[in-house]
Nucleic acid binder design. Structure first.
Length: 848
RNA sequence: GCGGACGUGGCGAAACCGGUAGACGCAGCAGACUUAAAAUCUGUUUCCCAUCGGGAGUGCGGGUUCGAUUCCCGCCGUCCGCACCA
């Protein structure tokens, strides 16, 4: 008996698959009518190193791809690189390397690691989004959307680092300061390119209903993100002497029923009226400046202290001109949502209530809860947002909330002050980035014609290689010659756009490009019609909203261009959890990597010690593997020690795929043990002889059923547990002929541990390769037991069990149960009131 | 703050439609093999009282039900996303 040697077996089988072109995608003709199946994992950013998260993600996709292949599907399973983005530019600044060289070097390094994983990928379709062949095609469709008016320019706010003179991403703003300079970050307005995703808002909501193989939570998150709300848009008239040109303030509300509870009107700091007032009022200017600084993200804005500044202006209530409300500038009102102005109703909105308490504004309840009375109901520290009847509201009194909303809208519309309107939380997608390492926006600016899309025969607009990163800001903008060009429309002198596209654009259509990555047009319609939509898309849940929503939007936009036939790119979606690990800190507070730590017994104390110093180590929380906390286990070290299959098996085994899995050394050793046990069984089970065992046959069919259901339902951990259990059964079946059972087991584990399966298949004398074996079918009669053990409950408490034939009639089971000696003992002196028999499950005897 | 999830032994978990809670793995304990150790194999392992046996138990508090980890209401805790990270 020989120990399984992954170092010898694994490269051998990878070479065998490669030499046989096993994973080369078949054309529809070659597939000979077999149904297609498109499996895709979210493609990686080429950081240069494979991490355990990749191992988990791509192993899951591989299991699906190999399983579907065994089920007879014609499978497309491609891989590429999401290769544009900030890290390459950061490397250029910090290490003086060129983003292009850095990126392609990383791709080459990662490709080697990917090959080791033994994935069933068709590498002939590989591309990187930074290949001009890819982004040039992207520029083609982008130019089309521009001509169609789906692309436009408008002013938008960016984070500006006044020391580095550069735009900062939100993640580069740390506590309101630039990450490199440490300078206080300012908000600055720039003219930027936008994609009109809001035009598709309703379609994107409606489309969610068709995505029945998406997790409910992701659909819900997208719906909430789009945030369609019905409400009222209307104008409060300014009274007294407002600045010239400002007669009123237009607000949007989803609660027009609470209009009589209004006690102030709040506008955003960058509302035109606020900006006008700031010109002549230094106090307002200072406050607006304060609002402009700091908070880069919505989360920070929403959690920041609610602050306001009274402008001294007043507006009249729309239903009572004599009723005046103060106008305040508030840091929690967003210019991007609705009209950038709201009315505050403190009694029925918590944020408004907090604000009203702070600035001593009236709190007027206008919705009476069902169990409240007008005299007793008070709003104190908590706003009331529940159901009820309207009161304190003149002509709305007594109405339900819904009826009052309708009535308020009708009256406002009749008065010509506004109209009912649908508003989305979703904003148009700002795609401009003032950076070098991205897809150039294919537009030129002509003094005569304005912005003009680059003509198709002049694409791609290629990034120049000769750029420098010694000056702050966008290297494309400083390039001496690159931006000088001629106008495609009038032929006059013109300048290229120097902004590049958000990398989310690159990842919004790559799945369609994979169907024919070498096509002369962005998408080969015939190939896309055959392969799209992606049948199973797999990736991190952190992409639940942005990437997945953008990809759905672009697919719809391209469908309207007739470039693709489907509206929804991903028919099935699976969002997998992260790989986590314990964190360790040394005595001096430094983070320590797992490799720097030992578990041992030191005198009386057991625990973790730093290997180098022998000092004791604090064990922190279990967190996502990250460089900053050093709780990273390098996949290559694991492959080296246990082989790829053990690593693959472990990331699939311990936790359900949608949940986080905690990497542990002992866990991967368990997987390694399994690999060896399978090998040992196969090694010792190849000889004929032994008796045919019905028990083993039944166990085998049960296993096929369980494995198949586990794979279909994305319960890989359960499937793996069944393999382990089957191995235990197999060990105990001494004297039985195990050859058939082993062959079946090997085919079933093949998607999980493909190298081991091939080695075993060969040892068992199977024909061809394990990867080419069809998925075994099970006989439903053999996959269930003939006689079952049924628990007997008395008043819901388990009091015994009986044996009964499967499918036995209720009467028979009832008789066996009541005759049972244990049951009778418990029933002594009691009256049986009812006997509930659930077929093949349980018997519950109710006594009184 | 808003939106979404999750919470079961010492640990990772299973229980798919409301029907035996803890499959499978890890760690632990006991044993076999060994001069010894490692590796491997066998058994055992939710907690409490215990001889048979009984009681409690799925974050906490309530509810529906013959029966609740599963459904409903309220609370607590943890994690993810929040639009220029990918």
């Amino acid at each position: 008996m020989s120990r399984y040697n992954p170092k010898e077996q694994e490269p051998r089988w990878r070479a065998a698959w490669r030499d046989a072109d096993t994973f080369l995608t078949k054309t529809p003709e070659q597939a000979q009518g077999r149904p297609k199946y498109y499996v895709l994992e979210m493609f990686p950013y080429p950081s240069g190193r494979l991490h355990m998260g990749h191992v988990r993600n791509y192993t899951m996709g591989d299991v699906v791809a190999r399983y579907k292949r065994a089920r007879g599907f014609n499978v497309l399973h491609p891989m590429g690189w999401d290769a544009f983005g900030m890290p390459a530019e950061n490397a250029a600044i910090e290490k003086g390397v060129h983003p292009k060289g850095w990126t392609y070097d990383n791709i080459a390094a990662m490709r080697v690691q990917f090959d080791q994983l033994g994935l069933s990928l068709d590498w002939s379709r590989e591309f990187a989004t930074c290949d001009p062949e890819y982004y040039g095609q992207q520029q083609k469709w982008f130019a089309e959307l521009f001509r169609r008016g789906l692309v436009y320019r408008k002013e938008a706010t960016v984070n500006w680092d006044p020391v580095d003179n550069t735009v900062l991403a939100n993640e580069q703003v740390i506590d309101g300061r630039g990450w490199r300079s440490g300078a206080l970050v300012e908000k600055r307005k720039l003219t930027q390119w936008f994609l009109r995703i809001t035009q598709y808002a309703d379609d994107l909501i409606e489309g969610l209903k068709t995505l029945d193989r998406w997790p409910d939570k992701v659909r819900l998150m997208q719906e909430n993100w789009i945030g369609r709300s019905q409400g009222l848009r209307f104008t409060f008239d300014l009274t007294g002497h407002p600045p010239e040109g400002f007669e009123g303030i237009e607000v949007y509300t989803t609660r027009p029923d609470t209009l009589f509870g209004a006690s102030f009107v709040a506008i955003a700091a960058d509302h035109p009226l606020a900006e006008q007032l700031a010109k002549s009022n230094p106090e307002i200017a200072v406050f607006a400046e304060e609002c402009r600084r700091g908070a880069a993200t919505e989360a920070e804005i929403e959690t920041a202290e609610k602050k306001g500044l009274f402008t001294g202006l007043e507006v009249a209530h729309p239903f009572d001109p004599a009723w005046k409300l103060p106008v305040v500038i508030a840091n929690f009102v967003l210019m991007d949502y609705g009209t950038g102005a709201v009315f505050g109703c403190p009694a029925h909105d918590q944020r408004d209530l907090d604000f009203a308490r702070k600035y001593d504004l009236p709190v007027l309840p206008v919705v009476l809860p069902p169990d409240g009375t007008a005299d007793s109901f008070k709003v104190d520290a908590e706003a009331y947002t529940g159901p009820g009847r309207i009161y304190n509201s003149r002509f709305l009194d007594g109405l339900s909330i819904e009826a009052a909303k309708a009535e308020a809208i009708t009256r406002i519309e009749a008065a010509g002050r506004g109209h009912g309107s649908t508003v989305y939380r979703l904003r148009d997608w700002g795609v401009s980035r003032q950076r070098y390492w991205g897809c150039p926006i294919p537009v030129v600016h002509c003094a005569k014609c304005g912005p003009v899309a680059v003509a198709e025969d002049q694409l791609p607009v290629v990034l120049p290689d000769d750029v420098t990163f010694d000056k702050p800001g966008n290297p494309l903008a400083h390039h001496p010659t690159w931006k000088q060009t001629t106008c495609p429309q009038c032929g006059g002198p013109a300048e290229r756009e120097t902004d590049t596209l958000d990398t989310f654009v690159d990842s919004s259509w790559y799945f369609a490009r994979f169907t024919n990555p070498h096509a002369a047009s962005p998408i080969d319609r015939e190939a896309a019609d055959y392969w799209m939509a992606v049948d199973q898309y797999i990736g991190g849940v952190e992409h639940a909203v942005l990437h997945l929503l953008y990809a759905r939007f672009i697919t719809r936009a391209l469908k309207d261009e007739r470039m693709v036939g489907v509206a929804e790119p991903f028919a099935g979606l699976f969002t997998q959890g992260m790989v986590t690990h314990e964190t360790f800190k040394g005595a001096d507070g430094r983070w320590l990597a797992p490799a720097e730590v030992d578990y041992r017994t030191e005198g009386a104390t057991k625990g973790f010690f730093e290997t180098a110093s022998g000092q004791s180590v604090t064990v922190g929380g279990v967190e996502k593997m990250s460089k900053s906390k050093k709780n990273v286990v390098a996949p290559e070290d694991i492959f080296d020690q246990y082989g790829v299959d053990a690593a693959r098996l472990f990331v699939l085994s311990d936790s359900p795929p949608e949940r986080d899995v905690q990497w542990t050394n002992s866990g991967v050793e368990g997987a390694w043990r399994f690999v060896n046990r399978v090998w040992a069984e196969v090694d010792g089970g190849t000889e004929s002889g032994g008796v045919e065992s019905e028990e083993l046959l039944r166990a085998t069919h049960k296993l096929i059923k369980a494995a198949t259901e586990g794979l279909e339902g994305f319960r890989f951990n359960s499937a793996v547990a069944q393999f382990y259990a089957f191995l235990n059964t197999l060990k105990k079946a001494e004297g039985a002929d195990r050859r058939a059972a082993l062959r079946t087991l090997v085919v079933l584990i093949s998607p999980f541990v493909p190298h081991l399966a091939e080695a075993c298949w060969e040892r068992l004398g199977g024909e061809g390769m394990a990867v080419d074996q069809p998925w075994p079918a099970f006989d439903p009669r053999l996959a269930t037991d003939e006689e079952l053990t049924l628990p007997i409950q008395i008043n819901g408490k388990r009091r015994g069990e009986i044996r009964a034939p499967a499918g036995a009639a209720e009467e028979e089971v009832r008789r066996i149960a009541l005759d049972d000696i244990d049951v009778q003992r418990h029933l002594e002196g009691l009256t049986v009131r009812k006997v509930i028999v659930v077929q093949d499950r349980i018997v519950n005897i109710v006594v009184g």
